[in-house]
Design a protein around this nucleic acid. Structure first.
Lengths: 349, 349
DNA sequence: TCCTTTATGCTCAGCTTGAGTATAAAGAGC
DNA sequence: GCTCTTTATACTCAAGCTGAGCATAAAGGA
């Protein structure tokens, strides 16, 4: 009767150590290796994957509890801050497994953990997330990969479109999304950038998915507006298993948005910190450098932190005062709803 | 082996007509009627429900396409703007159906449609969403239900807590969430408000769920910190089936947030409109009155609209110019990322 | 013509933001 | 000790945005 269904629970578990944002990955056998003419990850037989576990429909009372449960089992990490991200349900998300049978719907979560911790069972490791998205780190300089590879490749892709109107739309999209030709870089558009590269065929996942899909359904023709130049398609960024890089891009974009209006960064910091440490973590997430004095002004005036009176002598220069997060703001935050033009409080209009 | 799983697709379909925000509901037989001593909706044998359809794991290539498909079938509405909201997966979301068997995970979507439209099959109707959340409409005045019913009821609930510390925390939460005792009203906290009322036992769904749950699992004791005074528990707002009011609250909160930073309101308006019409729609969604001149300044300076040169003579006073949405802003929006203190564009820090 | 109603333009003070300048406090080298 | 380097932190200033209101314009009706 009904096709069997599996609910997968994926976690993008984020930590920041030494100014490097990291994501917890596990090794997953590369099923595509069995096929001929297949792109293979550098490591050979394994691909990076986000920690994954199926929902136990009988035992897990809640999706989130299910997630916490097997993350604990699998990595020894007790998750703190957890937030549901998105539910991925496209068919052929997972063209490899379950070929005959079950369809996998994945509910993805974002989790923030405080510092890197040791973990137990599975073959897990922390990886710099900019390894997967080298074009996202603008802290030191505009990433060279953009001008060296992305822009030319995408230009080719745009040029390959037959209709002039299509070409214009594609060009516009490329410019907006990657901040080219005068458009500003918007650090939140992580997912849009990844999806554009995927569509254009410049990430390894695209080629892999196409190959697997045609193998599974030999009759199906997929028509993408402009098709990538088949000559030397670059493979940008480190690939992941299945659609996990898409999930990670979603997580990254969401997190970059969220730190701007909710005090979630503190989940990543130890209980006391200097303002520069705080700033560095925000910068690591946002992939952008910030103005120090203004940052400190904002944070202090926002009542987000309070002084401890203690100092960190390890700064190299004048010792920095240690601060702690003021949990009270969670309750105070009276008007996080900035944005409505002139919300009338007095109701006498 | 595995408990059977069903993926449900729920849609909160929103339209605004004559300054009333409406939600598309269908009638659903009230399964709890079969039980003794049950709270019943005013209509008797039926409860309002959000349109719902199961995912066809074999046929639907995408969750969103599945949703669009059966919304078309069921109501004749062709959805335009659709956005995934949240995935609800708690066990006992649906204590009525599937008692022996399947667990239902619901992926909820928010959809915006342009004006009210006619529809085809099922018994569907548009309802003022403030019927479900009478405390959310602050346009004319602070809703009287807050001081008349909510505040006293919640005060009782707080007082019922045994621990002083618990009492303090609950009081704080009540104040923040409902804007009492000096806290400001935050129109985005729709879900928090509903959940607080649910926890405290002042919405009909709580009593119903509790009854059904204890009936299904007679042994289970649920312990909520303070339990509601069993005397005369009010039933605030019109109830819905299952957890649909929770889903609706999620939709409302999300929409109220989104209109502030993405031009989605225009999905609800016809192609040309006066600025006051635009403002009224925003106000209907936000549940708050806005300052007219400042609203128009913001909208115009933001480049969101352009004049048509035509005028609407139906205003009652001086005719208002008709505007249209400038689709280009979708491409322009160069820096929607307001919020990072001093993002350094020049990268020379 | 006057009044009412809505539309629209303009002002003004207070606050926030972006970008600096200036000063303080530590350690290292002499 | 003094000087240099390094980082921390305080303070300034102009530009722009926000909240609130005043003023004028253009219609219809008494």
């Amino acid at each position: 009767m009904t096709t069997p269904l599996v609910i997968g629970l994926n976690a993008a578990i984020v930590a920041v150590t030494q100014e490097v944002p990291r994501i917890l990955t596990v090794k997953r056998p590369d099923h595509s290796l069995a096929l001929p003419g297949e792109m293979v990850s550098e490591d050979g037989a394994f691909l990076d994957a986000l920690p994954f576990g199926p929902l136990d429909a009988r035992a897990d009372p809640t999706l989130e509890l299910g997630l916490r449960g097997w993350v604990r089992e699998q990595t020894g990490i007790e998750l703190g801050y957890v937030e549901q991200l998105y539910t991925f349900g496209d068919r052929n998300r997972d063209p490899e497994e379950h070929e005959g049978g079950a369809r996998v719907i994945s509910v993805a979560y974002l989790a923030l953990v405080r510092e890197r911790q040791l973990f137990g069972a599975a073959e897990a490791s922390w990886r710099d997330w900019y390894g997967y998205f080298p074009w996202e780190d603008w802290r030191l300089t505009r990433p060279s990969i953009i001008d060296r590879e992305i822009a030319p490749s995408l230009a080719q892709w745009v040029a390959a479109a037959s209709q002039p109107a299509t070409r214009r739309r594609c060009q516009e999209r490329v410019d907006i999304v990657f901040g080219l030709n005068g458009a500003a870089w918007d650090e939140e558009r992580v997912l849009e950038r990844y999806e554009l590269l995927y569509e254009a065929g410049f990430v390894a996942e695209k080629a892999r998915d196409r190959m697997l899909r045609t193998k599974l359904q030999p009759g199906s023709q997929n028509r993408h507006s402009p098709s990538p130049s088949q000559t030397e398609t670059p493979s940008l960024g480190r690939p992941m298993a299945l659609d996990h890089r898409r999930i990670l891009a979603t997580a990254l974009g969401r997190l970059r948005g969220k730190i701007k209006y909710r005090p979630v960064v503190f989940e990543l910091l130890s209980s006391t910190f200097t303002l520069l440490q705080l700033q560095r973590v925000v910068e690591a997430l946002a992939g952008v450098r910030l103005h120090k004095q203004n940052f400190r002004r904002l944070v202090e005036k926002g009542g987000l932190v309070e002084r401890t009176g203690q100092f960190d002598p390890e700064t190299g220069g004048r010792p920095a005062e240690l601060f702690r997060f003021r949990r009270e703001v969670l309750r105070e935050r009276l008007a996080p709803g900035v944005g409505l033009p002139g919300a009338i409080r007095s109701l006498e209009s």
